[in-house]
């Protein structure tokens, strides 16, 4: 079975233990969003409008379940609309990740995972099997992804191809992703003269953004996007599968969608920049994305105080990258060269 999963706060391993493969929807690029106008206002972000338009326009035929985790007010709205109105023909599920970090949050998360498991059982008509093994397989895949993201310069791929590989994590089964990505960990590439940048924001879309970075003489050496860097969760310790899933989710890198503060995020970004040698931070922010937009002024100030250059590119993931944003990126890199 396939679950069309909107971003991003959900336990992949739980779905796998029910024989469901989550395939994430981040737009998708090129989707005509007009079909979503019937249910969503124009001030909803392009990821959500695009996701709904894709599903309503026939994409749901490829899915058995629609999963809308609660990552922000707009995802909340979409999930609620899908649960309450006959918009799509496939069953919808929701999942709430707490915005605080404490033992009580992990307890809540574990109970929420159990609730989702009950829903999955009803839909799939089967029990979860090998949930702990499924979790360990996801942990291995995350470990490979973490190494791939940390060793970007060893991978002799253009930014576009590199992210094509990284983002297989959004839809491939964990074991297939691990098998596909692991060989790249031992690859080697020559020294790079490109300007090292850290990519933050929501998602490395539209892909023209990555081409524009390369063309302007830059290379992404570290990632803090919600779609990639912020999905990395460490290995769990607990031998109870659901508790382990909850612990892992609660330990992901700081993200405003999970309630991380500005201070936590600036520390994390500065650490990423230091470890990767990044000289600038590019924020690829989706228009109307409140979780990201609120923190940007303070993050920008903190990063610039530490000597990093920053630029903000506000994008629509369903549209090509506007020339104006390419020019802004070029201007940033020119001032640094």
């Amino acid at each position: 079975m396939i679950a069309a999963a909107l971003p991003i706060l959900y336990p992949r391993e739980l779905l796998r233990s029910f024989g469901v493969l989550p395939v994430e929807l981040w737009g998708p690029p090129g989707t005509k969003t007009a079909i979503a106008d019937r249910w969503l206002q124009a001030y909803t972000c392009s990821i959500i409008r695009g996701g709904l338009a894709f599903l309503a326009g026939g994409g749901q035929d490829h899915a058995d379940i629609i999963l809308v985790p609660h990552g922000c007010d707009s995802l909340q709205g979409l999930g609620s609309v899908l649960l309450d109105f006959p918009v799509l023909s496939k069953p919808a599920l929701s999942f709430y990740h707490p915005r605080t970090r404490s033992r009580a949050s992990v307890d809540y998360l574990e109970a929420e995972i159990e609730s989702l498991a009950e829903e999955l059982q009803k839909i799939t008509g089967r029990e979860a099997t090998d949930a702990l093994e499924a979790t360990i397989r996801e942990e291995e895949a995350d470990s490979v992804l973490a190494k791939l993201l940390a060793g970007r310069l060893q991978v002799a791929l253009s930014c576009r191809d590199y992210y094509r590989l990284v983002r297989c994590r959004e839809y491939l089964p964990a074991e297939q992703f691990t098998a596909l990505a692991r060989p790249w960990l031992s690859s080697e590439s020559g020294p790079s003269s490109a300007m090292p940048v850290l990519l933050s924001g929501v998602v490395p879309e539209p892909s023209g953004l990555l081409d524009a970075l390369n063309e302007a003489g830059a290379v992404v050496v570290a990632d803090d996007t919600i779609a990639c860097g912020r999905r990395l969760t460490p290995e769990g310790r607990d031998q109870s599968a659901y508790r382990r899933m909850a612990e892992r989710m609660a330990s992901a890198p700081p993200c405003p969608t999970r309630g991380a503060s500005v201070e936590e995020r600036s520390r994390h970004l500065l650490d990423l920049a230091k470890r990767s040698g990044a000289k600038a931070v590019v924020f690829a922010v989706v228009k109307f994305c409140e979780p990201e937009l609120f923190q940007l002024p303070l993050l920008k100030t903190a990063l610039e105080r530490a000597g990093l250059r920053t630029t903000i590119l506000e994008v629509d993931v369903t549209e090509p990258l506007p020339q104006q944003l390419k020019t802004r990126m070029e201007a940033l890199l020119e001032t640094m060269s």
Partner: peptide, 24 residues
């Protein structure tokens, strides 16, 4: 959820404790 991000900005500005009551 807006209030969460908004109050994080306030907490940063005023340097005072932020108590979050998260209601799923």
């Amino acid at each position: 959820q807006t209030v969460l991000y908004w109050y994080q900005v306030l907490a940063h500005h005023f340097g005072v404790p932020l108590v979050i009551i998260d209601t799923p």
